[in-house]
């Protein structure tokens, strides 16, 4: 679905490349999480996938990015948006309307979705993120978390094949964050939508995504199955990524020779693992 090959990008007037020789393949129906410290290049990579780079931000662009066999270099972000839905990091600037309903309608109208289908999509998107009562509310009157849900609803209403979300739960409380990830999981499993999430909440991410990619200084330094990646917690700590304590604990025990049976990514797994170590 998404094929990135030897991608390097340096912003105009930038001293260092923001992306440095990145190669990554994201298959159809995959649920990928991207983690990394500030300035690692996560947002730039998302811009490269949705075509904002090189079309909106000028700079030195090398390599290629193909989305559903379309080279992002040869098309516009607008055309790509028929396939890729993007939720940006800065939610306030993502809003283009003053009322929730209009915000959802914006993309649907632009894509010339038939009138009789629009209402159905509008309602199902609002319902999916749990903001149906906010339909007629002014966006300025919403909290940060509510705005984030509106931004997600506006994108899922477009029913894209690929969804890229840049820190979609940054302003949400833990319960709402889980709600959003439950929704993403449903979209991924039920409708086969390919999902790429950039996120700082590793514990939450590791519970939902199938694969993880770790970025540092514009490069992907680790990628693969969630447990395989989290198995390198000491390397992640070195670049400032703090793994959940249960992950670090299982890795420490493993390094000391204990048979932990794979990385524990949540408390339930940790409890079961410790019981097994004690009693077996």
């Amino acid at each position: 679905m998404i094929h990135i090959e030897n991608l390097s990008f340096r912003y105009k007037n930038g001293r260092k490349p923001a992306l440095d020789n990145i190669s990554l393949t994201i298959h159809e129906g995959e649920f990928l999480g991207i983690i990394g410290g500030s300035g690692a290049g996560k947002t730039t990579l998302s811009y490269a996938i949705n075509g904002v780079i090189p079309h909106h931000f000028p700079g030195d662009f090398y390599g290629s990015v193909k989305v559903a066999n379309t080279d992002t270099f040869d098309t516009t972000p607008g055309r790509l948006s028929l396939k890729i839905g993007s939720v940006l990091q800065d939610i306030d600037s993502q809003m283009v309307s003053s009322v929730v309903e209009d915000e959802i309608l914006y993309g649907l109208e632009n894509f010339s979705v038939p009138g009789d289908e629009i209402e159905e999509r509008l309602l199902s998107a609002l319902e999916a993120v749990g903001i149906l009562p906010l339909r007629y509310r002014a966006i300025d009157s919403l909290s940060g978390g509510q705005k984030q849900k509106v931004a997600i609803a506006a994108i899922i209403a477009l029913r894209p094949k690929v969804l890229i979300l840049d820190e979609p739960t940054s302003e949400l409380d833990p319960k709402s964050s889980e709600q959003i990830f439950d929704l993403l999981k449903e979209l991924n499993e039920k409708y086969g939508i390919t999902i790429v999430v950039i996120e700082q909440k590793i514990m939450l991410l590791s519970e939902y995504v199938k694969k993880l990619a770790v970025m540092d200084k514009g490069r992907i330094i680790l990628s693969g199955n969630v447990r395989d990646v989290l198995g390198h917690s000491s390397e992640l700590e070195e670049i400032g990524i703090h793994c959940p304590r249960v992950v670090s604990l299982s890795n420490s025990l493993r390094d000391r020779g204990a048979d932990v049976g794979g990385v524990w990514i949540n408390l339930d797994e940790a409890e079961a693992g410790i019981r097994r170590l004690i009693y077996d």
Binding site: S81, V96, N110, F111
Partner: peptide, 26 residues
């Protein structure tokens, strides 16, 4: 400038240039 840029990107990523005069739903 940052917010305006973000808004422009957001509009572009939701088909700003695909809109026609008949796109309006209401």
């Amino acid at each position: 400038v940052r917010k305006i840029e973000g808004s422009a990107i957001s509009a572009e990523l939701r088909g700003f240039h695909l809109r026609t005069k008949n796109s309006c739903y209401k």
